[in-house]
Nucleic acid binder design. Sequence first.
DNA 1: TCTGGGGTCCTAGGACCC
DNA 2: TCTGGGGTCCTAGGACCC
Length: 373
Amino acid sequence: MDAFFASVELLAYPELRGQPVVVGGRRVDRPQTGADGRRQFSRLRDYAGRGVITTSTYEARALGVFSGMGLMKAAQLAPEAILLPANFDAYRDCSRRFKAAVARIAPQIEDRGIDEIYIDLSALPGDSLSLARQIKQAVGDATGLSCSIGITPNKLLAKIASDLDKPDGITLLAMDDIPTRIWPLPARKINGIGPKADARLAELGIQSIGQLAATPLELLVRHFGQRYGHWLHRVAHGLDERPVIVEHETKSISRESTFDRDLHPRQDRAELSEIFTGLCHRVADDLQRKGYTSRTIGIKLRFADFHAVTRDLTLPVATADAATIRRAAGECLKRIPLEQRIRLLGVRAGGLQKETAANMAADIRQAELPLFC
DNA sequence: TCTGGGGTCCTAGGACCC
DNA sequence: TCTGGGGTCCTAGGACCC
C-alpha cells in the first residue's frame, strides 16, 4: 500500500490532499472543527515531546521527512506540515479490506504486516500483468487507496520491484533485468540488509547491489560469517527460493510503552509499578482475546542512554492470567540492576500455545494439582 | 528535546540428557 | 580422573522489518 497510514487519513480529511502530512506522535489531538465549520489541524511545529513519524505523504517526503524520524527533527525540516495522530483501528480495518479484496482474486497470500503482502500468482490462469491490474482495481474499489506491485520470479525481487514505481505502479522484472535494474540500486534496498550491515558493507567499499554481486564469496564469508556471507552473495544475484507462506502462527505477544519523561527507579517507583502492572494486564487481555496461553514471560527495559536489556522466565505451566504474568515479570525485573533512569518498559509473552478445548481441560487439571506434584 | 510499538529470526553459551 | 558427540531447552542480545 502506498504511504498507507497517511493515505487512510486523507480519506477522512480530503482537504489535506496535496499537502505535506505526517502521522505519528503521542497524544496528538484529532483535528477540531472550528466555529466556521472548517477543520483545524495541528502543525509539526506545534509539537513538543517524544515520538517518531510513522508515515508521511509523498509531499512530506519531498521535504526530507520520512518514517522513523523523530518528530522534533522533522519539525525543523517541515514546520508547516500537518500532523495527525495514528488511528490504528482505521488502518486495521483498511488492511483487512485490502487483503480480502486481493484474496478474492489471488488466495495464496503471505501476510507481511499491516500494509504489505506477498502474492503467489503462479498457479492462477491469465498473465501476471492483467492479474496485477485486476488486483489494483479491486484494492482501490475496496479501500479507495492505491498500491504498488512488483511482479518477479521471487519474493526478494518482488519487494524491491514493488518500490521502483511508487506510488500506484506495477513493475515487471525478470532475472535478465537484474544487471540493469537491480545492480545499480543501493545494497540497503535488499530486505535483510539493514543499517548495520549496510555500514559494514560500505567499509568494504560496497555500496550497490552490483558491487555486492561482484564481491568474491570468500570475502563476504570472511567478514560476515558462513550463513550471512552466503546469503549476501545469493541475494545480490537475485536468488531467493523462499515460498509464499500462507498460514502463520503467532510466536509472541507484547506491549511496551515509552514514557513522556525518563522515570527514576526509586523516586518514580509507584508510577513505574502502575505502568508495569498495566502492561501485564494488556498482555493478558491480548492473550485471552486471541485464545493463547504463554509459557515464557519476558520484560524489556530501555534506559535513558537508549540501551535496552531483556529478561525472561519460562513457567512450568502456560498462562494467560494477568496476576501470574505480573509475578513472573516481577521476578524478571529483580534480575536487572537499576542504575539509570528508565525510558521504556515492556512485557512480552512468548512460547505461545493455542488455547484449545483440550488444553483448557489440561490447564484446569494442572491448576487442581497440589503444589508438590 | 534525537530515536514508537509490534513483531520475527538468528546466534551463542550453559544446563541437562542420552 | 577425564571426557565424545548428539540433542533440546532456556536465556540474553541484536539485527531487521512494517
